[in-house]
Simulated assay, not measured.
Amino acid sequence: MTSKRPVIKRHFPSWQVVTEYGESDLRRVLDDPNMIAHERKVRACVANARTFRDTVKRHGSFKAFLDQHLPSGSFEDLMLLKELLETTFAYLGGVTVYHFMTDIGLNVLKPDRVICRLFHRLSLLDNEDQLLKSIMEGRRFAAGHRTTDPLHRHRAGGIRPSSLARAGHSQGRVPECTTLRCVQHSPALWASCFGQRDCGHT
């Protein structure tokens, strides 16, 4: 996917541009042999650009939209926001939405195959498909959680919390200086089904 980023950015330079794409623009993108050959993903990027535009118009900014749905910053709020993002934007699957939330500094981790396999081998998951439980275990590590179970402490002792989740913004609203600050100038959300990131504030 990384090798495709230059061509993705060339076709999707900003969400403002992509909102104006018509059928001829979509055909141009899809006919590029260097582009990802997945029509549903390409169309989802255009649909998401328009959804993003409409969200900004209604709320003033995308950050304001997210803050509205994170009144307390609780785990319940995070999961409700995750569900809202999945149902609002096209082709935004469970793992990808966690990736986006991680990128903007929220206290979750992306439960990809590596993380789920690791947690499963540590006997923290019953199977590698337990995405929600992997998020909960990641938060436990990030918070420096230790149980009274000595076997659990032994299993978890060799893992640095910082390698599993971002704990810097575990309280309150979405932080100002994150990818979210730049999301209106980059395709980080509406092209997130490609895993694209483009933010200078890192």
Rank of each mutant, 00 (worst) to 15 (best):
R40M: 11
A47V: 02
R50H: 06
R53W: 04
E39D: 11
G22A: 12
S61K: 09
F52Y: 11
R43V: 00
F52S: 04
R10I: 06
R50T: 10
A49T: 02
K9L: 15
S61Y: 08
R43L: 07
F12K: 03
I8K: 03
A44E: 04
K57W: 02
D25G: 04
D54N: 11
A44N: 00
T51V: 13
V29E: 05
K63L: 06
A47M: 09
D32A: 04
R27D: 12
T51S: 07
P33E: 14
T51Q: 09
C45N: 01
R27M: 08
R40Y: 14
T51A: 06
W15Q: 11
P6M: 06
R27F: 04
A64S: 12
P33K: 09
G60S: 03
L26F: 08
K41R: 14
C45Q: 01
D31P: 01
T55V: 14
D54G: 05
Q16Y: 12
R40P: 01
Y21Q: 08
I8T: 03
S14Y: 13
T51C: 07
F62L: 10
S24A: 15
R10S: 14
R28P: 01
A64P: 00
L30W: 07
R43I: 01
F12T: 02
I36K: 09
L30V: 07
V17T: 12
I8L: 15
N34F: 07
N34E: 15
P13T: 00
I36M: 10
R40V: 14
I8D: 07
A44G: 11
D31K: 13
A37D: 12
R40F: 13
A44I: 00
V56I: 13
V18M: 04
L26W: 04
A37V: 01
F65K: 07
H38F: 08
S61H: 06
S14P: 06
I8P: 10
M35W: 08
S14A: 09
L26Q: 07
R28H: 10
L26M: 10
R40I: 13
I36N: 06
V56G: 00
K9T: 11
P6I: 01
K63R: 14
P6E: 01
G22W: 01
G60N: 08
W15A: 09
F12V: 05
G60K: 05
V29C: 04
A47Q: 12
I8S: 05
D54L: 08
V56T: 03
E20V: 09
S24L: 12
